[in-house]
Amino acid sequence: MKTSRCSLAALLIALVSVAGCSERGNASRKNAESPPAAASAPRTDEWLGKWTGPEGTFLELAGGHGRYEVTVQNLDGPRKFEGRYVDGGIAFERDGTPEIIRATTGAETGMKWLADKKHCLTVRKGEGYCRD
């Protein structure tokens, strides 16, 4: 009787140990598959809002979490595009040409009107928008 109780106790301990390891394995796998909620919003979400350029031009970003509505106001008027997070920037297509919005300084925009600015976004050299 004593032996069967010991065997039963040993079996229960073994089962609890295996179950505990299995749960830890699943938790580790879940953490590797899905990042914490705070990490899921890309840095580009900080760019939401309006960015101004010279002569009444602007860039406005709405949305978030990797999906954006990009509005570009140039001398011909505003145009809207669908954007998405790509490699630290926001990609969109304009007139069949792929574009990527990147964080830059005013000098990096290539525009003399923005050269002294610090916090800017550039679509391409000569097309930039700033907040400061």
Rank of each mutant, 00 (worst) to 15 (best):
N26P: 00
S40H: 01
D45L: 02
D87Y: 00
R84A: 04
L48D: 08
A19M: 12
P42A: 04
P36M: 03
A62I: 00
G49T: 12
A37P: 02
T97C: 01
A41H: 09
K50C: 02
G83Q: 01
E33Y: 06
K30L: 09
A41C: 04
V72L: 13
G64P: 07
G66W: 14
G96F: 00
T44I: 08
T71E: 09
I101L: 13
A39C: 03
I100R: 15
T71I: 07
A41T: 05
S22M: 03
A27K: 15
Q73P: 09
G53F: 05
T71L: 11
G25N: 07
R94Q: 15
T52R: 09
L61E: 03
G49V: 03
T71H: 07
D45Y: 05
D45T: 02
P42E: 13
C21V: 04
R84E: 12
E69W: 02
E99H: 15
D87F: 08
G53K: 11
N74R: 14
I100P: 07
S28T: 06
T71V: 11
G25K: 02
P36Q: 03
G83C: 04
G20S: 14
E69F: 01
A103I: 00
P36D: 12
C21F: 08
G20W: 06
I90Y: 01
E46W: 10
G83A: 07
E46V: 01
A91V: 02
L48E: 05
Q73F: 08
R79K: 13
D76T: 14
S40E: 13
G56F: 05
L75F: 13
R102K: 15
D76V: 03
G89L: 06
T52I: 01
A38H: 10
D45H: 10
L48R: 14
T52C: 02
R94C: 05
R102Q: 15
G89H: 04
E82T: 07
A41I: 01
D95A: 15
G20P: 00
P54F: 01
A41K: 06
A27W: 10
E33Q: 08
H65T: 02
E99R: 15
R24Y: 14
R29T: 05
V86P: 07
A27M: 12
A39M: 06
S40G: 07
G63Q: 12
K50T: 14
G83E: 04
H65V: 10
T57H: 06
W51Y: 03
R84T: 00
P42G: 06
G56C: 02
L59C: 11
G20R: 05
G56S: 01
T71K: 14
V72D: 07
E69L: 05
E99D: 13
F81Q: 12
S22V: 04
R79Q: 07
S34A: 05
G63A: 14
S40R: 15
A37I: 09
D95Y: 13
G53W: 00
K80A: 08
P54V: 09
D87E: 11
E33W: 01
V72S: 12
A39S: 04
R24N: 15
E99P: 08
D95E: 15
E82F: 03
K50P: 00
R94W: 06
W47K: 10
W47N: 04
E55Q: 10
C21R: 04
S22K: 01
P35H: 03
G20K: 06
G89W: 02
F92D: 13
P42R: 09
K50V: 09
A39L: 09
G96L: 06
A37V: 13
